[in-house]
Simulated scan of single mutants.
Amino acid sequence: MSKITLNQLTHPQRVRLLYKTILRLHRGLPTELRALGDNYVRDEFRRHLKCNPMEAQLFMTEWARYASTITKQLGLRGKPKGELGEQLDPSAVEMLKDDQVVQLYELMLATKALNGDTITADDVRGATPK
């Protein structure tokens, strides 16, 4: 049986492979983060079903980068090796559309609540970091 390379897959097949890979990687996350992450991934992939080719390329590139980051942070055994996640580049945040900023903000509030962190008045007002 011959091996199939990524270049031989159709775009929908590559999307499906990335989607399933990310969900598999999430198995190594703590339970609460896994549930939040799985729901977020499902929503994002559904939301981009009908996007234009340029957006699709950017979408795939960023999610592949996410999968790579999670792979490094979980290690070979699928258990977190230290802290999960990474800081966002402020210039990348500046390029987000308004609805993406709202979505990022809601994700921040959800993760704070999961970690048992107190959601402050500054969080609710949307204060920017200093």
Results as ranks from 00 to 15, higher is better:
residue 9 L to Q: 01
residue 104 L to N: 06
residue 84 L to I: 13
residue 9 L to N: 03
residue 108 M to T: 13
residue 99 D to G: 10
residue 59 F to H: 07
residue 130 K to W: 05
residue 25 L to E: 09
residue 76 L to N: 15
residue 130 K to D: 09
residue 96 L to R: 09
residue 49 L to I: 13
residue 15 V to H: 07
residue 32 E to R: 04
residue 80 P to D: 08
residue 49 L to E: 15
residue 125 R to P: 05
residue 30 P to V: 00
residue 59 F to W: 10
residue 92 A to L: 12
residue 119 I to Q: 11
residue 125 R to V: 12
residue 94 E to A: 08
residue 11 H to L: 06
residue 101 V to M: 02
residue 70 I to V: 06
residue 2 S to G: 10
residue 105 Y to R: 01
residue 17 L to H: 03
residue 111 T to F: 00
residue 14 R to E: 07
residue 76 L to A: 15
residue 107 L to P: 07
residue 107 L to D: 13
residue 61 T to M: 14
residue 17 L to G: 10
residue 105 Y to G: 04
residue 58 L to E: 14
residue 83 E to R: 06
residue 20 K to N: 14
residue 65 R to I: 13
residue 16 R to W: 09
residue 109 L to M: 02
residue 1 M to C: 14
residue 46 R to P: 13
residue 60 M to S: 09
residue 1 M to S: 14
residue 112 K to N: 12
residue 32 E to H: 07
residue 57 Q to P: 12
residue 39 N to F: 02
residue 59 F to E: 09
residue 44 E to V: 00
residue 23 L to N: 14
residue 115 N to M: 14
residue 117 D to C: 05
residue 1 M to D: 11
residue 107 L to S: 08
residue 57 Q to H: 04
residue 55 E to T: 03
residue 71 T to H: 12
residue 101 V to T: 07
residue 46 R to E: 13
residue 66 Y to K: 02
residue 56 A to I: 01
residue 116 G to M: 11
residue 119 I to R: 01
residue 72 K to E: 14
residue 104 L to W: 02
residue 123 D to H: 09
residue 59 F to I: 04
residue 62 E to V: 09
residue 67 A to N: 05
residue 45 F to D: 11
residue 61 T to H: 07
residue 94 E to W: 10
residue 1 M to T: 15
residue 80 P to A: 14
residue 50 K to A: 10
residue 70 I to G: 07
residue 34 R to Q: 07
residue 6 L to C: 14
residue 95 M to I: 02
residue 111 T to Q: 01
residue 84 L to M: 15
residue 119 I to W: 06
residue 25 L to S: 08
residue 34 R to F: 03
residue 100 Q to D: 12
residue 51 C to D: 12
residue 32 E to C: 07
residue 14 R to D: 10
residue 12 P to T: 00
residue 51 C to M: 10
residue 6 L to W: 04
residue 9 L to M: 05
residue 68 S to L: 06
residue 82 G to W: 01
residue 17 L to Q: 12
residue 9 L to E: 04
residue 100 Q to A: 07
residue 86 E to H: 02
residue 36 L to M: 06
residue 126 G to A: 02
residue 46 R to Y: 06
residue 11 H to Y: 01
residue 85 G to S: 10
residue 68 S to K: 11
residue 9 L to T: 05
residue 62 E to T: 13
residue 103 Q to P: 06
residue 9 L to W: 00
residue 56 A to H: 09
residue 85 G to L: 02
residue 54 M to N: 02
residue 10 T to S: 04
residue 13 Q to H: 03
residue 119 I to A: 10
residue 22 I to Q: 03
residue 36 L to V: 08
residue 19 Y to E: 15
residue 66 Y to P: 10
residue 24 R to I: 05
residue 71 T to I: 11
residue 52 N to L: 06
residue 30 P to F: 00
